Simulated scan of single mutants.
Amino acid sequence: MTDTTAGHRFGEGPLARASALVYTLLVVELLFLLTTVPGLIGLVLLGRDATNIPLAALCLIPAGPALSAALYALHHRRLDLTDLHPGAAFWRGYRANLRGVAKLWIPWLLWLAVIGSNLATAGARGWWAALSVLIAVAATLWIANVLVITSLFAFRARDVARLSVYFLTRSPRASLGNACLLVLAAGLTLVASEALPVLLASVFASMLLLNSRTVIAEVRERFTA
């Protein structure tokens, strides 16, 4: 009885919880890389040329379901070090959300590819360039909501799309926090390379969940039975 109690306390202590979080982040990151590696290799080979924007969007298609699976696994993570199954949770979320995420992730990528290509090839300047950038940022904040809602709830794609638009202004703190994540990811990409945000994907997913706490709570309270 004593040994069982001691083991239970070990699994639930502060140090054990921190270790459980680190372990979960590492496993989720490895599985994210595993499920996106073909596209990531393509991105590395493409380089930063404006004509490669459509191909880059194509390479990013696997990232949507992988991010959704990461969000699902992190949301359902266990705090007990002796009861960790992040890999199983990742694959469960991947299978459950693959189609739902793809229905909105792929159109978003196509939309960004169109905006990016127009900005790069047409040499847009002034107010038109600023407007295009604002639209791209808004669309990215929208897809962040899409990923969270699709990963944790079972709604039709069109309902997810509407809810994601609704929460852009309904939860300004979440939108601001996600905007900060976007700036951070863009900064890391410019200063270092595209590989750095990818290697921190599980950390970004964890921060996205943290930013979206009010969104998750309201969806659960108001829009689920």
Rank of each mutant, 00 (worst) to 15 (best):
L26T: 10
A63G: 06
L71G: 08
P65T: 09
G42Y: 10
A69Y: 05
A70V: 02
R78Q: 12
S68A: 13
D80T: 10
A50E: 13
G42L: 11
A63W: 10
V27F: 04
P54M: 01
R48S: 12
L58N: 08
D80R: 13
L67I: 05
Y23C: 08
E29F: 02
H76T: 01
L45N: 11
A69M: 07
G42F: 09
T82G: 13
L71C: 06
P86V: 07
H75D: 13
T35R: 06
I41E: 08
L84Q: 15
V27S: 06
F32S: 09
F90C: 02
L67N: 08
R77P: 04
L60V: 03
R78D: 12
T82Y: 14
D49C: 07
H76I: 01
P38T: 04
S68Y: 02
A89S: 07
A70C: 04
G39F: 12
L30C: 15
H85G: 14
P86E: 09
A70R: 03
D49F: 12
L40W: 09
L43T: 03
L55S: 05
A57D: 01
H75G: 11
A70L: 03
A88D: 15
P65G: 07
L55K: 03
L25M: 01
T51Q: 04
E29N: 12
R92P: 00
L43S: 03
R92L: 00
C59K: 01
R77F: 04
A50F: 13
I53A: 03
L60S: 09
A88Q: 15
L40I: 14
G42M: 09
A73R: 15
L74G: 07
L81N: 13
I61N: 00
L33C: 11
A89T: 05
N52A: 14
A70D: 06
L45M: 09
A56K: 05
R78G: 07
G87F: 01
L31G: 10
A73W: 15
H85Y: 14
G42S: 11
G42I: 06
